[in-house]
C-alpha cells in the first residue's frame, strides 16, 4: 500500500514540472518583465530608467530560459525561469504587483473560500442524495418523470441567474440578509447563508440527476432483487442496500473535488464580496497581476493531483482488488 502511494506521488512530480514549464511559457509570453514593472510602478510619470532599475532589482533583467553570458551551471540557473518558476515548488510564490507576499495572502484567503465551499458541498450532498433517493423510490411514476424534467430545467438555468436573482430577492426585496460582505469569526455566518443557499440550489439539478442514475444502476442489480424477493420493504431496500452500495461512487466522486475546495468559487465570491481565493484569482486576472495567476495555477494543479491521489487511495481502501492493477 505504502509503496503504491509513494509510486503515485513520484508520478506527480513530472506532471508538476510540466505544469510549471507550461505556465511559465504562457505567462512570460503574455506578460514581459517590462509589463510587470509598469504595472507595479503605476501609471503617471514612469521613466524607462525606473523600469530598468525595477527589473534589475528583482532579477527580471536576466534572460528567460538560457543565459549565454554566464558560466557552467549558471547558464541554466541564472535565468528568470530557474529563479522565479522553480521557487514555486517550495511554495514561495513571490510578491504581487502591489508588493504583497502572495503566499501570505493565499494562506489568509483560503479560509473564507472553505467557509463557502465546505457547507455547499455537505449540504448539497445531503439534499441531493435525499431527493435522488426519493425519486428513485418513485421510479417509473409521474413523480419520477417530472422530477427529472425539473432537474433538467434547473440545470439549464445559468448559474449567474441564480446569483443575480437570489441577491435581488432575498436582500433587496425581503431585507433578510446582507447583500454582500464578509466578517471574521462567527459574525461571518450572516454573510455566508445566502451564497451557500444559492450554491446549493444551483447544484440541485445536476446533482440529483446524477445520484438518481447511480441509484437506478444499483437498484437493477441482482442482490437488490434478492433482497426485495425476501420481502423486505422498499424503504429498507433503498436504505440498507442501494444507498450503502452507491456510497462508493458517491464518496470517491467527492474525494476528487475535496482539495479543489480550497480554490474557491470564482463567480460566487466576487459577486458576494467574499475575500476568498476565487475572488483573488478573478481580481488578478482583471488587473493582470500575473504573479498571482501563476501562483494560483500552480496551486490548482497541486490540489488537483492531490485529489487524484486521494481518489486512488480511497479506491484501494474500498475495493482491494484495484491495488493489484
Amino acid at each position: 500500500m505504502i509503496a503504491y502511494i509513494v509510486r503515485r506521488i513520484l508520478y506527480a512530480i513530472p506532471i508538476l514540472i510540466g505544469v510549471n514549464i507550461l505556465t511559465f511559457v504562457l505567462f512570460f509570453v503574455v506578460n514581459s518583465p517590462d509589463d510587470m514593472a509598469r504595472m507595479n510602478l503605476g501609471m503617471k510619470r514612469v521613466t524607462p530608467e525606473a523600469i530598468e532599475n525595477w527589473k534589475a532589482e528583482r532579477g527580471y533583467d536576466k534572460p528567460l530560459l538560457f543565459n549565454s553570458a554566464s558560466q557552467g551551471v549558471g547558464q541554466v540557473t541564472d535565468t528568470i525561469f530557474f529563479q522565479k518558476s522553480l521557487k514555486l515548488f517550495q511554495f514561495d510564490f513571490g510578491t504581487s504587483d502591489s508588493d504583497r507576499d502572495i503566499g501570505y495572502d493565499i494562506s489568509q484567503r483560503m479560509w473564507p473560500s472553505l467557509a463557502i465551499a465546505v457547507p455547499v458541498l455537505l449540504i448539497g450532498l445531503l439534499v441531493n442524495i435525499t431527493y435522488a433517493l426519493l425519486i428513485a423510490f418513485f421510479r417509473a411514476t409521474y413523480i419520477d418523470i417530472w422530477s427529472v424534467v425539473l432537474c433538467v430545467v434547473m440545470m439549464s438555468i445559468s448559474g449567474l441567474f441564480y446569483i443575480i436573482g437570489g441577491q435581488y430577492l432575498v436582500s433587496k426585496l425581503l431585507h433578510l440578509m446582507p447583500i454582500s460582505g464578509y466578517d471574521t469569526g462567527f459574525a461571518a455566518v450572516k454573510f455566508l447563508i445566502l451564497p451557500v443557499l444559492i450554491g446549493v440550489v444551483g447544484g440541485i439539478g445536476s446533482g440529483t440527476r446524477w445520484y438518481r442514475t447511480l441509484f437506478l444502476e444499483e437498484i437493477n442489480r441482482d442482490y437488490v432483487r434478492t433482497a426485495r424477493a425476501k420481502g423486505l420493504s422498499e424503504g429498507i431496500v433503498l436504505f440498507r442496500h442501494v444507498l450503502k452500495n452507491a456510497m462508493i461512487p458517491i464518496l470517491t466522486g467527492v474525494v476528487v473535488v475535496l482539495p479543489l475546495l480550497f480554490m474557491g468559487s470564482l463567480i460566487t465570491e466576487s459577486f458576494f464580496g467574499i475575500p476568498g481565493l476565487g475572488s483573488y484569482t478573478i481580481d488578478a486576472i482583471n488587473r493582470q497581476d500575473f504573479a498571482i495567476v501563476r501562483a494560483m495555477v500552480f496551486l490548482g494543479s497541486v490540489l488537483y493531483i492531490i485529489g487524484l491521489l486521494l481518489t486512488d487511495i480511497s479506491y484501494t481502501l474500498v475495493d482491494p482488488r484495484v491495488r493489484l492493477s
Binding site: 506532471i15 505544469v19 507550461l22 504562457l26 509570453v29 503574455v30 480554490m263 484569482t281 495567476v293 494543479s301
Partner: peptide, 25 residues
Amino acid sequence: QYTYTTLNSIPGVLLIAAAILMLQI
C-alpha cells in the same frame, strides 16, 4: 496519460485567461 493529466491539472479558467491574453498580444 501524462499529457492529458498535465493539461487537466491546470485550472481551466486560468488557462483560458492566459490563452486569450496571448491572442490579444
